[in-house]
Each structure stands twice: as C-alpha cells, then as structure tokens.
C-alpha cells in the first residue's frame, strides 16, 4: 500500500535537476512554517490592526504585547521549567546509571531485567492514564508539583536506559580496564569515565525529555487544579478559552505574543543542543 502512495509524488522531482529538489524542499518547509509565521505576525498587532488588518505586516509593531503576555504567563513558564528541569535531572541520573549497568556489568538476570524495562516502551499510555490518576489521588499527590515530576522521573528512564545503553556500549572497553586496574569502583567508573564520554547521548536524551515535558498537556490538565501550579500548555489553553477575540479587540495580539514566548525555551534548547538531537536520531539508525 505504501509504495503505491509514494510513487506518484516522488517521480517528478527525481528527474528534475538539483535545483528542482531544492525548490521542492523549500516549498514543503515553507508550508510547514505558515502557522508559525502567522503567529509571529499577529503577536505584534494592536486591537484595531488585529481586527482589520490581520494577514499583512502592519506598522507600527506593538512590542508591548509581549510585556502584557509575559505578565500573564510568567508563572506558567516558571512552573514548567521547574518541573521539567527537576524531572530531567532525575531522568539523566537514572538513565546514566541504568545504561551503564546494562551495557558494562555482567550479572545474573541481566537480559530479562533489561527487557522488563524495554517492554514498557510498547505499553500505550491509555491503559495507565486513568488508574495512574487514581494512584496519585490515593497517594495525595494530586494538585502538587510531584504529580508532574514523578511520572517523568519514573517513566523517562525507560527510553533513557535504551538510549544510554546503546551509547555506553560504544565506549572502548580498554578505558574501563585500565581504570579497573587502578582500583576504580562502580561509582568512579560511572562518574569519571562513562559520564564525560556519554555527554552527547545525555544531550540527545535531554532534548527529547524536555520537549516532551514542555508539551505535556492532558496529564497536568487533570492532575493540577490550582492554576498557580499549572504548566504552560494548560495555561495557554485556558487563556485561549477566556479571551474571545471577536468580542475583546485587545486580546488577540497579547495571546499570540504568549504563544511566541512559550516557544522560546524550545528555541534556546534547539540552538544549544539541536545538533545532538539531529545526530542522535540520524546516526543511531533507530528502527524496529
């Protein structure tokens, strides 16, 4: 089925020159960026411009929209960063340790234990969503930041161990042997050899994990009722519901400015670590 679908759109560009290829790629990339461009354009409009001149760039640009937006969403941004960073630290530590143990140590039941973790990648979240809510309810964790941090620390290492094991296996064994000869224990093998040499893997994992946390929506929507602890996705969702722009002229611009602000942490993350993310995905040759 898939080959039939792939055939027709692909035939023409391949017979064209490299130029045609570039044009087609640029076209697809531009199309994907249309909503983003519209978002940025709208974020600079005042109420009248938003009402009457929505799709052109209209001067003057109203930068103060960003200040109004920041006043509303700063707490959501802070909450999300806090929860994501604390969770990420836990995930990185546990994934590094787990990856090291499964890649470098030999012990009975190693493979069964490894597969007991990896099999969890195949359990769709629908089965646990409802009972997990009840579990957090019974533990009294609803409406606390732990309800957002614990699922990440507990669940994040599943993929993390998979990724870090593959990465740590690639470290030359001689490095470990010479360290062992010098009498290094498990902790120093992890901390002084594995950790510095697996930084690119940890970077890939950080990007994946942080993006997932920044995007998480349904779980915080149901577990956090106190808006002062709420995360950015749910915050923006609620704001988009309360500001009805066909009634309130002024609300359009700041709302879109808020959307832009919410994207900035991801932009920073990709500027700093995006290279590792791309290489991690391309060079690991992930498949099933």
């Amino acid at each position: 089925m898939t080959t039939e679908l792939q055939r027709s759109p692909n035939r023409r560009p391949l017979q064209m020159s490299q130029l045609g290829l570039h044009i087609l790629i640029a076209f697809l990339l531009l199309l994907s960026l249309v909503p983003t461009v519209i978002m940025i354009n709208l974020s600079f409009k005042n109420g009248l411009q938003y009402r009457w001149d929505r799709w052109n760039v209209s001067l003057p640009l109203r930068g103060s929209n960003y200040l109004s937006a920041w006043d509303v969403i700063d707490a959501y941004m802070f909450n999300t960063v806090l929860v994501a960073v604390v969770g990420l630290l836990g995930v990185l530590i546990l994934s590094l340790i787990g990856g090291y143990v499964f890649a470098r140590m030999r012990f009975p039941l190693r493979e069964p234990l490894y597969y007991a973790i990896i099999a969890l990648l195949m359990v769709p979240w629908v089965l646990s969503f409802i009972p997990a809510y009840m579990l957090y309810n019974n533990l009294g964790l609803l409406n606390t930041r732990w309800a957002l941090i614990i699922p990440n620390i507990a669940g994040g290492p599943i993929f993390g161990i998979f990724l870090m094991r593959a990465f740590i296996t690639g470290i030359p064994e001689e490095l470990y042997e010479s360290a062992r000869c010098d009498g290094a224990g498990a902790w120093s093998l992890i901390w002084s050899i594995t950790f510095p040499l697996s930084l690119p893997g940890l970077a890939t994992l950080s990007v994946l994990n942080f993006v997932a946390e920044w995007n998480s929506f349904l779980w915080p929507l149901v577990t956090i009722s106190d808006m002062s602890k709420q995360v950015i996705s749910v915050g923006l969702f609620r704001l988009s519901r309360t500001t009805n722009d066909s009634v309130d002229f002024g609300s359009g611009g700041p709302l879109f400015a808020g959307y832009v602000l919410a994207s900035i942490p991801l932009v920073i993350l990709f500027v700093v670590l995006g290279k590792f993310y791309v290489e991690g995905l391309v060079e690991s040759g992930i498949k099933m």
Partner: peptide, 27 residues
C-alpha cells in the same frame, strides 16, 4: 557477587513498580 549491579538498579525498579508497572495492572 553482583550485589552492586542490583543496588544500582534498585531505585529504577522501585520507581517503575509503583508508578509504571502498577497502574496498567490496576487498570
């Protein structure tokens, strides 16, 4: 002899059992 490996893995498996294995079984 392998106690070290199990000790290193124990925090992972404790968290997994409570928050990852248990909910789907409960469901």
């Amino acid at each position: 002899r392998s106690w070290q490996a199990y000790a290193l893995l124990s925090p992972i498996f404790i968290l997994l059992s409570i928050f990852v294995y248990y909910p789907p079984v409960l469901g």
